[in-house]
């Protein structure tokens, strides 16, 4: 398991604090998820109508990891900052690209990614930390490069995150897919990945 030093913006005092990105989710990370993350999410969802609850509020990360943790084609990531879990991601490396210019070439596909409830503006305003989303995309790109996939990445965005992937990360929007509950599919080419890594 590798640990990368990264930085998050701490809104409380407008500083940047060191964080760690691990390329394997451990039982300790999952314990943080169930003990810290889940209670806050449950409290937020509370009496909300189902359609108003965050789409990922019912995701069971323990179950997801149990299903794919032993498969070589899947990799999981955990982001830790100041002793707390800030985000989780699972990627796979067996899917292929859909954009015409790279059609059929292998990509790293983001199966699931989400950030802790205290980092979401609709739950906690101001948010505690900013920057987790682009750190995870950077990790997906680097994972893709390491696989020899040239930084190509694809994902199905939850509806409220579409702007992030298109405008803030430079993904190409390919439209909703009925095979994926009509979630919009986004894909990044190698050159788009290069621009992302240059922070452009």
């Amino acid at each position: 398991m590798n640990e990368s030093i990264v930085y998050l913006h701490k809104a409380e005092n407008n500083t940047f604090v060191e964080a760690s990105l691990f390329d394997q989710v451990t039982d300790e990370h999952l314990a943080m998820w169930s003990n810290e993350w889940v209670p806050v999410m449950k409290k937020h969802v509370g009496d909300l109508k189902l359609e108003n609850a965050p789409e990922d509020s019912h995701w069971d990360w323990k179950k997801k990891l149990a299903e794919v943790g032993h498969l070589l084609s899947y990799q999981s990531f955990a982001l830790i900052c100041e002793g707390d879990l800030q985000g989780l991601m699972i990627v796979s490396n067996v899917r292929s690209a859909k954009i015409q210019e790279q059609f059929g070439k292998p990509i790293v596909y983001v199966e699931f990614v989400s950030t802790a409830p205290w980092n979401r503006v609709e739950i906690n305003k101001p948010v505690k930390y900013r920057g987790a989303g682009r750190i995870f995309i950077l990790a997906a790109i680097e994972s893709s490069r390491e696989m020899g996939y040239g930084g190509r990445v694809g994902l199905h965005s939850l509806p409220q995150a579409e702007r992030f992937y298109e405008s803030k990360c430079g993904f190409k929007r390919l439209g909703p897919e009925s095979t994926h509950q009509n979630l919009c599919y986004f894909e990044m080419t190698s050159s788009q990945a290069d621009l992302f890594c240059q922070n452009m």
Binding site: S4, V6, F16, D23, D56, S114, H156
Partner: peptide
């Protein structure tokens, strides 16, 4: 997989990200 980017990269990146939602994945 190990990330080797300077602190400045993350500082700029966090400002780009702002308060946007980031969730992705099929339910």
């Amino acid at each position: 997989m190990k990330l080797n980017y300077p602190k400045e990269w993350f500082e700029k990146s966090a400002l780009i990200e702002g308060d946007d939602e980031i969730g992705a994945g099929v339910p």
